[in-house]
């Protein structure tokens, strides 16, 4: 299990990286944390001719607040997110979700950008990004563009990033005061990708739900937002009875597929259970925050 040979380009700047990617089409790949890519290369399921290593682009590793927006550089290590006070304060949903991503040694190298660009539909962060209405900033030799998270994820391991394009930043609106949240998942073992994960946010006041987001990992080819369930929250009394109904709607709406580890029926069961539980936790946090 050794990777096939490739040409190695160590980028020392973003332009350098873009130059390295240019002209190779799909044969060139960005190497970030390598925690997905190198595993696939060892199995020879992926054989890039050129590997552009962006690990020296320390100017892509940051977490900062910029006028109402939380900006996370693509090369930010997942473990940096995990231990960041800024994230804990401004994006507690991500802080909660990140702990479900693999294990500490994987998060020490795995990056936020790599995780999103890899676009595994059972991954936690894409669901979080969609739930929070994140936007992705990208660069290519043609220039910069921004892509809404909703438009970014296409299919398993497939995004609207062009092959010569670099994801440089994730922008997330700063956490609105009083919004509750929860990330929950069921995975085969601790640290595994989710069978089903749910990223939930909730705003409620005076015993009434005002709005919420429900986005799932593991139930479709990309993160799945269930608008019908979200709408069903609005205006209803905040509490278990409502959440039970909403969970039922969500379970009915999703169209998961079956694989060895989980049938569609089981995934629906998990959607039902996790939705209710996540909303309960989110409500509790919402009330505590208020």
């Amino acid at each position: 299990m050794k990777p096939a040979p490739f040409q190695y380009v160590r980028a020392s700047s973003i332009d350098d990286a873009l130059a390295g990617l240019a002209g190779h089409g799909d044969d060139a790949k960005v190497l970030a944390g390598g925690q997905s890519l190198i595993a696939l290369m060892n199995l020879r399921l992926v054989r890039p001719a050129v590997l552009v290593d962006i690990n020296r682009l320390s100017d892509l590793a940051y977490i900062r607040q910029e006028n109402g927006t939380l900006a996370i550089g693509a090369l930010t290590r997942q473990s940096a997110v995990e231990s960041s006070d800024v994230i804990a304060r401004l994006c507690p949903l991500m802080a909660e979700a990140i702990r479900f991503v693999g294990h500490r040694p994987i998060r020490n190298r795995g990056t936020v950008g790599g995780n999103l660009a890899h676009a595994d539909p059972t991954s936690e962060l894409p669901a979080v990004a969609v739930a929070l209405g994140a936007t992705f900033v990208t660069r290519s030799q043609k220039g910069q563009r921004t892509i809404a998270a909703d438009d970014f994820f296409v299919a398993p391991l497939s995004t609207t990033l062009a092959s010569n394009e670099l994801l440089t930043e994730v922008r997330i609106p700063v956490w609105p005061a009083g919004q509750g949240w929860a990330f929950m998942e069921v995975s085969p073992r601790a640290g595994d990708y989710a069978l089903v994960g749910v990223a939930a946010t909730l705003r409620a006041a005076d015993g009434v739900c005002q709005s919420g987001r429900l986005v799932y990992s593991g139930v479709g080819p990309r993160p799945i937002r269930v608008a019908k369930a979200e709408q069903a929250l609005v205006g209803c009394s905040s509490g278990e009875a409502t959440f039970r109904e909403v969970a039922e709607i969500a379970a009915g709406q999703v169209e998961p597929s079956s694989d060895f580890h989980a049938t569609a029926d089981y995934r629906r069961d998990l959607v039902r259970a996790l939705t209710r539980r996540a909303l309960m936790v989110a409500l509790d946090r919402c009330q505590k925050g208020a």
């Binding site: 199995l43 085969p188 073992r189 601790a190 640290g191 595994d192 060895f260 580890h261």
Partner: peptide, 14 residues
């Protein structure tokens, strides 16, 4: 299940 991601050897948490 021919790999360690699908052949599920218990971790400490299991």
């Amino acid at each position: 299940t021919a790999n360690f991601a699908d052949y599920l050897i218990p971790t400490l948490k299991e």
